[in-house]
Design a binder for these strands. Sequence first.
DNA 1: CTGAAAGCGCTAACAC
DNA 2: GTGTTAGCGCTTTCAG
Lengths: 341, 341
Amino acid sequence: MMQKPRIKDVAARAGVGVSTVSVVLNNVEGARVSPETRERILSAARALGYTSNPIARSLRTRRTQTIGFVGDDIATTPFAGRMIQGAQDAAWQAGYLLFLVNTGGEHALERHAVRALLDRRVDGVIYATMYHRHVEIPEMLGDVSTVVLDACPTNGSVPYVVPDERGGAAAAVGELLRAGHRRIGFATESLEVPAASGRLAGYHETLAAARIPADPELVVAEHGDTTGGYRAATRLFDLGERPTAIFCYNDRMAMGCYRAAAERGLRIPYDLSVVGYDDQDLIAPELSPALTTVALPHYEMGTWAVRRLLELIRDDPEQSAQGHLMPCPLVRRDSVGPPPR
Amino acid sequence: MMQKPRIKDVAARAGVGVSTVSVVLNNVEGARVSPETRERILSAARALGYTSNPIARSLRTRRTQTIGFVGDDIATTPFAGRMIQGAQDAAWQAGYLLFLVNTGGEHALERHAVRALLDRRVDGVIYATMYHRHVEIPEMLGDVSTVVLDACPTNGSVPYVVPDERGGAAAAVGELLRAGHRRIGFATESLEVPAASGRLAGYHETLAAARIPADPELVVAEHGDTTGGYRAATRLFDLGERPTAIFCYNDRMAMGCYRAAAERGLRIPYDLSVVGYDDQDLIAPELSPALTTVALPHYEMGTWAVRRLLELIRDDPEQSAQGHLMPCPLVRRDSVGPPPR
DNA sequence: CTGAAAGCGCTAACAC
DNA sequence: GTGTTAGCGCTTTCAG
């Protein structure tokens, strides 16, 4: 392995000064270089297999073409990977590389991580959480362009992107409405998280828009897992007049709902329609019948975040904060049918 | 936000030369600095909030304290996150940061990615695939310390780590043997992948060690998904003398196996024992009864890979290649019982 | 239009 | 023991 060529080598080979090489290779705007000199330089560079050393460049320009991605937990959720990939792809496309650091949600580690990233002179950072919630971002981030991914910052004023839970819920309920349902239950998550309140709001709004009076009985809260879904569905089934369709807070609850329905001999989608949320790989398509659900736009949020970040980096640093709602598309499968007569 | 202090500022404040500061801050070995000078420097640095600029340092030392992680697909499998996290954690612990790049398996992109990482002067790279297989690593990687993660390199001679499929299968079958089973089916994956052959070998060896004659009928190959598992189980049930236990190539197949068993009225673990492989979050613990299975050591492989890489980086660059088999632990749950009488 | 030279912030010889 | 200095490879004035 021979030594990497330096700019000086290219200059020597082309018989010009290093600055001219620099100008040519960087396509500097207002620089006039004779076409033939330019060509000579270009071919010299090519012949040598020259690529500039980003480290040296960074030292001079104070920009590293890197961005830091700090996340609280990249491992446990399958969603995390998609966000990271979205971010990575967008960064790569723009010629940036991503530093990934995982904090496990520990505050101390997080501070350390941000510090390490700033030391490394990243041009910006993506601060991500692995599910939609409120977060306080480290104040050190005030020193660098930042965008928050899948969370609402409670301090500072930085752009952020979260799923449009409300719109997703509206799409889900709308689908049920279109199928003819009028009595639609909502099996919600009992935790107070933005996703839950957003989805509940979407549920209510959509029903109201269809002039269907709200029936508090139809909204039941349980844990957001299979068991919770089972419980919620059971409670709904035990109502005087049971709903003909259930919108579940997530696919795991929908799974529990399926089980409860099976036990009662309720066939989906004939006797009961159900729609979930999250579009989880190993659940939604695998259930039988396959579950109609709403997908979380993790990949898209990841790309949005770094695109926005790059804008911040390149344009004036003082932009007004803004939250972006990323649409959650409905994924139609086989768990919705007309209500039984 | 005021300008970051430079080493010169620290030197000035402490009333010493920059080299002394450098020596003190880097804890250089054979350097004798008077304790009081050292203390003065340290407190000056603290007072200024000085942290050295890694970019400048790298330019000089030719080491960047970064490692590149190229993976073919970080998003679609939940396992990927664990490997990345393992790698990230180990790197972080050692003071290294991880550049993450995703190639989507595209060869051209991969070359680009490696090139970009080398340009950035990473100290080493982890070349990872998202499931155990054979790969040809880009030859450019010959120029830098490399370790291969979750794959066997077919060219070059670099360290690599893969799951001990054979040992995992042996553990699974051993568990069944201990429960008293003698007629154990293996629902395998029909694709020729290292995981499949490794697990098959483990199955055979363990049976042989227990002096149980091999019965070719008991090994059935199907697609490695739910449907495949269903088919395989069905074929096994239709045998003259049906097995009392089934070892499935993976949890998805085990899921299909559960369904097939349910349809026949076979209760797990009373009429049939089953063990899976992979320990997938949304499957193994959620099935009822919860599935006894074998876990894939992704996190551990990730940490192993970067630890090994760091050895390569710090020690003599020419080490003999070697593959490491990471043990796959058995995860006991409720799907194994004694054979029916 | 092109080249010389001054740093970017740091480390490591090498003087003192 | 401690300070001076020469680069690391590149960009960017500023002369020519």
